[in-house]
Write a protein that binds this DNA or RNA. Sequence first.
DNA 1: TTGATAATTTAGTAAACGATAAACAATCAA
DNA 2: TTGATTGTTTATCGTTTACTAAATTATCAA
Lengths: 226, 226
Amino acid sequence: MREGKATRKGPSAAVDPPVKSTGRRRGRPWSFDRAAALEKAMLIFWRHGYEATSLNDLTSAIGVAPPSLYAAFGDKKQLFLSAVERYLEVYGGGGAGIIQRAPTARDAVYELLHGAARGFTQPGRPRGCLLVNGAINLPEGADEIRDAMVALRSKVEKSLGGKLRAGIRSGELPRETDAAALAAFYLSVNHGMALMAQDGASRATLLAVADQAMRVWPGTRQAPRG
Amino acid sequence: MREGKATRKGPSAAVDPPVKSTGRRRGRPWSFDRAAALEKAMLIFWRHGYEATSLNDLTSAIGVAPPSLYAAFGDKKQLFLSAVERYLEVYGGGGAGIIQRAPTARDAVYELLHGAARGFTQPGRPRGCLLVNGAINLPEGADEIRDAMVALRSKVEKSLGGKLRAGIRSGELPRETDAAALAAFYLSVNHGMALMAQDGASRATLLAVADQAMRVWPGTRQAPRG
DNA sequence: TTGATAATTTAGTAAACGATAAACAATCAA
DNA sequence: TTGATTGTTTATCGTTTACTAAATTATCAA
């Protein structure tokens, strides 16, 4: 429970990324690749979480002084939210994208869980999920971040619920299926897998968890052995 | 990533709680109820997590000055671990206790999940689980805490796995049941429920999640509707 | 009453935190 | 070349962090 002042200053502040209108960008050019810097910041946040990541961790990993970081990304909160955006674009296939692209509701759930099992245990990457592990215990003043994360997580749940309801309408799922309960269940499994991954669970274990979860799918034959 | 010095000093340091031998306690008596203080500290840790809880939060909530807290409980890490102990005694019925007391393996799983759904959404208490939500994003120097938490969580998994294997031996579960996968699955659901609770999921939602998870139980009739 | 013991009060400590002021350097438009 | 613009460098800022030294106070044993 600390957090600094959070006053935003005058000039350009967190930059309008693409240059508007014609003509080249004015003033001194960036000395570093902003996309690469954001990638690095994202990885650090992913590994340590918002609160446990210090500005010093970020600036020294990126190789840049604090004022440059602030000019490029705004304060720590804004940087984190930008990092989350990038995470969703690059790694967060588990989000709404996969779900909506899946041909059937069952495929959506299957891809979500198995993609999570793989993504949460990718060698050379932080374990777990930035959306889940990155912002659990937030400092007092970080309500915007909490709200944003809750919103993003519930967006996945809603997207999944919508896909399930579509499956009900299409006849893929029985009419009496409780889509909300099923969506909440699969999201719980997804979140739990992220924590297990952080605790060191192997990819094989997480895939087994995903397989077990698939047996909840209505109509699944219930012979033992997962 | 901060954390102070963590040198332990000479005199009594974190106290041997019950007085040894005969005779009364010597020296000035405590000005506060240690058990009540620990309860308060535990609730704060539960609500905000280890890192996001400051010593000032603790001392001002308990109504005591830092040196008294240090004399009574040691440093922040020791206090947190003591708080976890207390949590497990008082609220952590979801732990190994419930599992081993349950008459059947299925009862163990059922009680674990439904107890979690209730316990994670108890009015007037922090949401979620101290073991899950309280120590996700830890600062750099808190390896002892991380290790302790990982050990405690895996203890539940092992206990559950043992109960499932006992169920296999007793004939309650088919011989081909993958006890490890099933235990990992149910633990994932438990952890996921803790996160969903922190995100605001209702007790009804969590109970529905628990019910869905029970359908994974080998031999469960698979009609739809959770 | 005296000495030993141990907790409390008061007032700090050094270090780390997020964030910034001011001077400087590099680019563009004119 | 000049002025405007904008990023970088350097050196902090004020706050909060976990933690503690020193003096004081309250109890027990003798």
